[in-house]
């Protein structure tokens, strides 16, 4: 039915047969912004308001506080296994810690679906250093890698993404923020590499970009993400509803594509 999702989301705030998978989230406090929803329990509660079925995240502290590391991710997922999975955060400045975390991936299979690389902030290109140990592990195990990507970045812009996409074809690479501002760069990478996906966090507040992505690549390699606790579910859902795309495209973006990516980690998924 045309505009079915629009009517239901506007009427109830969520749609029972349209779960949402948030493939790009964080958790906890962060140095530059005050977030009202930092507590894990509050985050879980807010997921329910939009029927967000699963959030895949990497805690801010993992990325910014090496002394805390990945322990907070493990703790949160084990507390809320029905709602959360995590990316193992890799800080390239501390390779020994990173290697230890990679070694423990097997024992944390119930927690992690892959890795999160925040190269623009850590200022090491995604193709260098200990990142390659994470890439090799992800290649061997066919894991996901969520990248922060930005258009002109020497650390995680299109040129360096192309290198790792070629080198590690078994990894499902999620381009967080879809090479923000270099939208054509993201489109070209998706067209060239079957293992590369666009992710919509920080994209959906620019009207017209999603319409262009779907127009040029279709909707089967686009996933939804919010940077939670940064950005609002309903704001982003509204953007997807406002784009000139079909409800089938919206369903692909909200959950179908994510369910395929996560199938091996969540064998029970299905809606």
């Amino acid at each position: 039915m045309k505009d079915e999702l629009r009517r239901e989301f506007f009427g109830k705030g969520k749609v029972a047969n349209c779960p949402i998978y948030d493939m790009h989230a964080h958790m906890g406090n962060w140095y530059a912004i005050t977030f009202p929803s930092v507590e894990t329990a509050e985050m879980i509660r807010r997921m329910g308001l939009s029927n967000v079925k699963l959030t895949v995240f990497c805690h801010h502290a993992t990325l910014n506080a090496p002394d805390i590391g990945n322990s907070v991710n493990i703790e949160a997922v084990r507390k809320y296994p029905g709602s959360l999975r995590a990316y193992c955060g890799i800080n390239p400045h501390y390779p020994e810690k990173a290697l230890r975390d990679i070694e423990k991936m097997e024992e944390n299979r119930d927690v992690f679906v892959g890795f999160k690389l925040l190269a623009d902030y850590h200022r090491v290109p995604i193709s260098e250093g200990v990142y390659n140990d994470a890439w090799k592990y992800a290649q061997e195990k066919e894991l996901l890698v969520l990248l922060h990507t930005w258009g002109a970045s020497m650390y995680d812009g299109p040129a360096v993404i192309e290198k790792v996409a070629e080198r590690y074809p078994g990894v499902r690479i999620l381009m967080g923020h879809s090479c923000h501002s270099n939208w054509q760069g993201a489109i070209d990478l998706v067209k060239k590499f079957p293992n590369v996906y666009m992710e919509l966090c920080a994209v959906l507040d620019d009207r017209g970009v999603l319409d262009r992505f779907v127009g040029e690549t279709g909707s089967e390699r686009i996933v939804f993400g919010t940077d939670m606790p940064w950005f609002s579910y309903h704001y982003y859902i509204g953007s997807v509803l406002g784009a000139a795309i079909s409800d089938q495209d919206r369903r692909n973006i909200f959950y179908r594509n994510a369910e395929k990516l996560l199938a091996k980690f969540l064998p029970e998924t299905g809606s």
Binding site: R6, H234, Y235, I237, G242
Partner: peptide
């Protein structure tokens, strides 16, 4: 913020704000 932003982003957010 239209036309730079989707109108629906803001209407949906406000309608379902707690």
């Amino acid at each position: 913020g239209f036309p730079e932003k989707y109108i629906e982003s803001n209407t949906l957010e406000l309608l379902h704000a707690e």
